[in-house]
Design a protein around this nucleic acid. Structure first.
Length: 838
RNA sequence: GCCGAAGUGGUGGAACUGGUAGACGCGCUGGCUUCAGGAGCCAGUGGGUGCAAGCCCGUCCGGGUUCGAGUCCCGGCUUCGGCACCA
């Protein structure tokens, strides 16, 4: 039942409607309007000023969109909308990284097949993302689990295979006993599985690898050319881990002949036909201090160099080391080890050095063997002390001499000078590294080498939910790539997709699937049954978006040239050494094969911060997860978006708390009221216009820096000015503010823009022009200091010179009383400050 | 241990190349307005001291450079992130 309106009440359907700000009405209206108008569709072929604004695509979890996702996407969306307001043709795509262990584990837990789970999750994500008001071009969305996508993931694999960059090898790999698959080094954190936290085991398995280590130097060197977040660059440099040093060869005397001759000082004869141990060292300068050699328990020479007497002890030690899990080995820093019974000859001194084996030497770094210099390496010092091995000083620091006893390892390599090193005595360490290497090289005992910590990328996964690796094994022809015309190798829909401990994928249980004729000879052959790592799916997706939908090619050459490299990429720093490293590597490979004409995919990358709650990471177990739906319903997407950006600096994240959100809502409400009540009578206020133009400049400066929190603060400040004392704003005072707000709160901005009489979208209205003349102030307030202490202020013209300001200051009794003598000097900073020094 | 980032009111956080520390928001105090409102508006809000104008002290701690330091330099402490028996 509705009462008729009283006669004198203006009809609300005329003019502003609805009279109050109701986000749910406004946001629904504009979601529909944008969809009808295909407002966010980018003209990929016709764009004149392309701008590719990319965000890391989400994994569509069953829990739905996380505020962390929303925070990142909103940050990207603001930047993208801002670029569009600058007149660029912006492409803001999104997709779903839906293959992988995470999705599969979830399906296992729920007892649902991933082929049923994933589409439901994607639908839910899509619904939530649409409510967020992102300027996403949904027509070019990608789903990594769709055959039209993974066909090309398999194609990428074949390209690497062609170049010899994909290869199969039997190696010690990280095995997650919980997820029952191998993991890449990048997916192991502190000896635990990055996803499930289980202790990782070592397994000797034959696996597919990508030879990313061939690109170590390029991956490192190119970092200097990238406009990336500093923290991300640092993390990548550390991961690649370049060390310069030398590989030194040590002759090992036959243990059967020479056992027991430890005390005998012999000069080794080079080339006496025994074994040789190669070690990597970054301190070749300390070779005169090397007193023993250590090989890893997995070292292939260990058996050959072990003496008869030591065989049982060494074998027991080796077996014990093999049983240890990775984390126990790397965290248990108490030194253990066994003497092998043989001796290596120090090429510098000619002395015999005992060869030990110990698990503090790792097989997967360097050569798996070290020369131990206990005087100048902490670990060697500890080991030598424990086992009574000789410790010798070969470097002196300030205040020491060649005979100063070493109570701990002296490791400084910046200021030290060599001693006890024959002809190198007195040479500074930094020069000696090179000189000793050259000298050893001349004796054919060493060579200078560069070592990287980076390992080849293991891409095999013994799981179901991924793209099958497109390879066929034939008894006659060997390893045969699946011909491109036969792609995709479809992932069969099998009910029993649960992984087991066998070291092979569940697909290996399906003979009907893996038995195929050899593409070369036609004889019966067998498919590879492992699938590839999810990071291969995400390693090239940015190339697919602009070409999404094309069936005959992974990415079109012309389109790619036009849209890539990506202009702006925003994502989480947890991918600093995963996705961001793999994508760079794959792009380099595609560049070298002539498929793309750039080697770096992301010109600019910014890592966003993390949203935490009550000082802790959000997690289900802590019960502090924020569900975006509740906030969309309760506050509206515009308020929620703006609030997230107002929490703190975008690149630092912030602590989510409900307390502050009302401030943002009331800002938007007041904006609504001011727009509704704006008038066109008379001229806009000069002071208000001055603030407006200062705000236009500040917001325009802040958005490209992703300094969203300060941009919002500035807009709030301006609105306060325009509304001060219950004043109603002139239309010319509010209209530009609607444009400034639009990247943050797109729905309300569109609505107000329309209510203000515009027919086109606010996003096609351009960015308000900054007028320097209007922003100029008539007067400035200058701080006056006496002897460095602020004693007052004076108001003067902006172009006032020192003498004017000084006169004004002295005319102020409150200031003048501090000027007790003749000023020694006066410091004047125009428009800012005057300091009278007594 | 090494590498990186950061320590500012009750609170989230501002502060350009060294130039009035605390913008903006939350919270709090007092007031106006409204049938009502997670509404709007006005004033105040770092600490100490004083009737007051004011004065003194204040950006993790200790030194230093400077007319002037949150900002630069040296030495510590703490927190967060990365790497970690990497030779």
């Amino acid at each position: 039942m509705t009462d008729p309106l009283p006669e004198d009440t203006p009809d609300p359907s005329e003019g502003f409607e609805p009279a109050g700000y109701d986000p749910s009405v406004v946001e629904r209206k504009w979601r529909e309007r944008w969809a009808e108008r295909a407002a966010n569709r980018t003209d990929i072929a016709g764009a004149r000023r392309p701008f590719y604004a990319l965000m890391m695509f989400p994994y569509p979890s069953a829990e739905g969109l996380h505020v962390g996702n929303l925070f990142a996407f909103t940050g990207n969306d603001i930047y993208a909308r801002f670029q569009r307001l600058q007149g660029l043709d912006v492409f803001e795509p999104i997709g779903f990284d839906a293959f992988g262990i995470h999705s599969e584990n979830h399906a296992l837990k729920l007892g649902v097949h991933p082929t049923a789970l994933i589409p439901a999750n994607i639908a839910n994500f899509t619904r939530q993302l649409e409510r967020a008001g992102l300027m996403v071009d949904w027509s070019r969305s990608v789903d990594t689990t769709h055959p039209s996508y993974y066909k090309w993931t398999q194609w990428v694999f074949l390209k690497l295979l062609e170049k010899g960059l994909a290869f199969k090898k039997k190696a010690a790999v990280n095995w997650c006993p919980n997820d029952k698959t191998v993991l890449a080094n990048e997916q192991v954190e502190g000896g635990r599985c990055e996803r499930c936290g289980a202790l990782v085991e070592q397994r000797l398995l034959e696996q597919w690898f990508f030879r990313i280590t061939d690109y170590s130097e390029r991956l490192l060197a190119n970092l200097d050319t990238l406009d990336w977040s500093h923290t991300t660059l640092t993390a990548q440099r550390a991961w690649i881990g370049k060390s310069e040093g030398a590989e030194v060869r040590f002759k090992v005397l036959n243990p059967l002949e020479d056992a027991g001759s430890a005390a005998v000082h012999v000069t080794a004869e080079i080339g006496s036909g025994t074994n040789e141990i190669r070690v990597f060292t970054t301190r070749p300068d300390t070779i005169y201090g090397a007193t023993y050699v250590v090989v890893a328990p997995e070292h292939p020479l260990l058996g050959a160099i072990t003496s008869f007497e030591q065989r049982d002890a060494v074998e027991a030690y080796r077996a014990a080391a093999a049983r240890q899990d990775v984390i126990a080995r790397k965290t248990n820093k108490v030194k253990t080890g066994v003497f092998t019974g043989s001796y290596a000859v120090n090429p510098a001194t000619g002395e015999m050095m005992p060869v030990w084996t110990s698990d503090y030497v790792l097989m997967d770094y360097g050569t798996g063997a070290i020369m131990a210099v206990p005087g100048h390496d902490e670990r060697d010092f500890e080991f030598a002390t424990k086992f009574g091995l000789p410790i010798e000083r070969v470097v002196v620091g300030a205040g020491d001499n060649a005979r100063t006893p070493l109570r701990e390892a002296y490791v400084d390599d910046a200021d030290g000078v060599l001693c006890n090193s024959e002809k190198f005595n007195g040479v500074p360490v930094r020069d000696a590294k090179r000189m000793v290497t050259d000298w050893l090289e001349s004796k054919h005992a060493a060579k200078g080498v560069v070592n990287y910590r980076l390992h080849d990328w293991c891409i095999s996964r013994q799981r179901y939910w991924g793209p099958p690796i497109p390879v066929i094994y034939c008894d006659a022809c060997g390893t045969v790539p699946v011909p491109e015309k036969d792609l995709p190798v479809l992932l069969p829909n099998i009910p029993d997709f649960k992984p087991d401990d066998s070291g092979v994928s569940p697909l290996a249980r399906h003979e009907e699937w893996y038995r195929v004729p050899c593409p070369k000879c036609g004889k019966q052959a067998r498919r590879e049954t492992d699938v590839s790592d999810t990071f291969l799916d995400s390693g090239w997706y940015f190339l697919r978006y602009p070409s999404a939908g094309l069936d005959d090619v992974a990415f079109d050459k012309t389109i790619t040239k036009k849209w890539l490299p990506v202009n702006s990429y925003i994502g989480g720093n947890e991918h600093a050494v995963l996705h961001l490293l793999y994508s760079r590597f794959l792009t380099m490979v595609l560049h070298d094969s002539g498929y793309v004409d750039f080697e770096e995919p992301f010109t600019k990358f910014r890592a966003h911060g993390m949203i935490i709650r009550d000082g802790a990471k959000m997690s289900k177990s802590k019960g502090n997860v924020v569900n975006p739906d509740d906030y969309f319903d309760g506050w509206g997407a515009d308020t929620f978006r703006t609030y997230l950006m107002f929490l703190g600096p975008f690149e630092e994240g912030g602590d989510f708390r409900d307390a502050g959100i009302s401030g943002v809502k009331s800002f938007l409400t007041r904006l609504w009221i001011s727009a509704r009540d704006s008038h066109t009578t008379g001229e806009p206020d000069r002071e208000v216009m001055r603030e407006l133009h200062r705000t236009i400049r500040k917001v325009g400066d802040d958005i490209p820096k992703l300094s969203y929190n300060t941009a919002i603060a500035e807009m709030m400040k301006y609105l306060n000015t325009a509304r001060r004392g219950e004043r109603k704003a002139h239309r010319a005072e509010v209209e530009p503010l609607v444009q400034l707000v639009s990247p943050f709160a797109p729905h309300i901005a569109e609505e107000l823009w329309e209510q203000l009489g515009h027919t086109k979208s606010v996003f096609d209205s351009g960015w308000p022009a900054f007028d320097a003349a209007l922003a100029t102030q008539d007067t400035v307030t200058i701080a006056v200091q006496v002897g460095g202490k602020t004693r007052g202020t004076v108001v003067v013209a902006p172009d006032a010179v020192e003498a004017d300001v000084l006169a004004a200051a002295m005319a102020d009794a409150g200031i003048a009383k501090f000027v007790t003598g003749t000023p020694k000097k006066v410091i004047f900073v125009p428009k800012r400050l005057l300091n009278i020094v007594l």
